[in-house]
Simulated assay, not measured.
Amino acid sequence: MSAYVGRFAPTPSGPLHLGSLLAAVVSWLDARGQQGRWHLRIDDIDRPRVAAGASDAILRALDCHGLGWDGPVRYQSRRGQAYQEAAERLYGAGHLFACTCSRQQVLATGRIGWEGPVYPGTCRTGPPHSRDTHALRLRVRQRYWEIEDRALGPVAFDLQALGGDFVVRRADGLFAYQLVTVVDDLALGVTDVVRGIDLLGSVPRQMHLYQALEQTPPRYLHHPVVVARDHRKLAKSHGAAPVRCRDAVPALARILTAIGVPDLDPEMTGSGSGTVTMLLEHALRHWHPARLPVDPIATAALQHRG
């Protein structure tokens, strides 16, 4: 077994759709293509977003598409103590500060970055507002970051333009995505994070957390995402249809074609006697990140025909 450790971490706000299935396939291929481990984590930390039965539906969909995982399924909702301990460590080392600013107060400053409002540093030296609750923000000490993305090549980031000091625990006590992802990836020993390009802006925030925790960050590979006709990312919140196990072979074949897997025989794509095992074995023989398309993948390229 190689040192490669990957993971797929869906949010159970609904069943898998073509976009999330594509993300799972790319992640699985990259791990199995390097004889690595592939873990499944259910990112259910944000309980208001969790849909009843969604976790079980995700597991069934992955299974019927041949995407088996290693070890037990992890659930973020069960790891609150680990997040609390990480936050206490960061706070004790001076990396976090209490922030009583509301979103409206941050927006009122009028500073808008690439991904939304830029935090102006209001509470860095102590909260000026009187509130019963407060968030915890990471004190950004390094503005510029660079990575060598395994699909995109060199990518540079300006963390100030991305929003500056960022929240790691919300005012309602819920730990934020950036912190829980880093803590959980460290616990799994993840060496390679493979995910959609819509999460590219998370890289410098998470690298800053790795640095603050005195840990080595993983390698990154960001792949294209599936977009709908309105050019928005395909998502459950926009009514994306769930994948169906009875359509596993043709759906998987269309995804493999869309991500650049060559030489798919018609006998493997649903018109003959193909199986998901045959498709994935073929994909593993041809998998390489360099074959991933540069542009987003339109849903039209994934529609069933015939």
Rank of each mutant, 00 (worst) to 15 (best):
residue 11 T to A: 04
residue 211 Q to M: 01
residue 168 V to D: 00
residue 93 A to M: 10
residue 103 R to W: 12
residue 162 L to W: 15
residue 241 A to N: 06
residue 223 H to L: 01
residue 93 A to G: 15
residue 71 G to E: 01
residue 213 L to N: 03
residue 57 A to S: 02
residue 102 S to D: 13
residue 106 V to Q: 10
residue 26 V to S: 02
residue 202 S to H: 15
residue 163 G to N: 03
residue 117 P to M: 04
residue 190 V to Y: 12
residue 271 S to F: 07
residue 160 Q to H: 12
residue 272 G to V: 03
residue 165 D to F: 15
residue 42 I to A: 00
residue 31 A to F: 12
residue 65 H to P: 11
residue 23 A to F: 10
residue 304 H to R: 12
residue 288 H to S: 14
residue 62 L to P: 09
residue 275 T to N: 04
residue 239 G to Y: 05
residue 57 A to D: 00
residue 250 P to L: 11
residue 119 Y to P: 15
residue 29 L to G: 09
residue 149 D to T: 06
residue 282 H to F: 02
residue 256 L to W: 12
residue 66 G to D: 05
residue 238 H to C: 05
residue 26 V to G: 03
residue 219 R to T: 11
residue 242 P to S: 11
residue 136 L to D: 07
residue 225 V to R: 01
residue 158 D to V: 01
residue 224 P to N: 00
residue 183 V to L: 12
residue 184 D to G: 09
residue 216 T to P: 10
residue 91 Y to H: 06
residue 300 A to Q: 14
residue 101 C to V: 07
residue 132 D to Y: 01
residue 66 G to T: 10
residue 54 A to P: 04
residue 240 A to L: 13
residue 236 K to A: 12
residue 245 C to P: 10
residue 161 A to T: 15
residue 152 L to S: 06
residue 103 R to T: 15
residue 35 Q to V: 10
residue 48 P to M: 03
residue 300 A to S: 04
residue 174 L to K: 08
residue 120 P to S: 01
residue 196 G to M: 06
residue 236 K to I: 11
residue 34 Q to E: 15
residue 151 A to P: 07
residue 22 L to I: 13
residue 60 R to A: 05
residue 214 E to K: 13
residue 114 W to E: 06
residue 180 V to A: 14
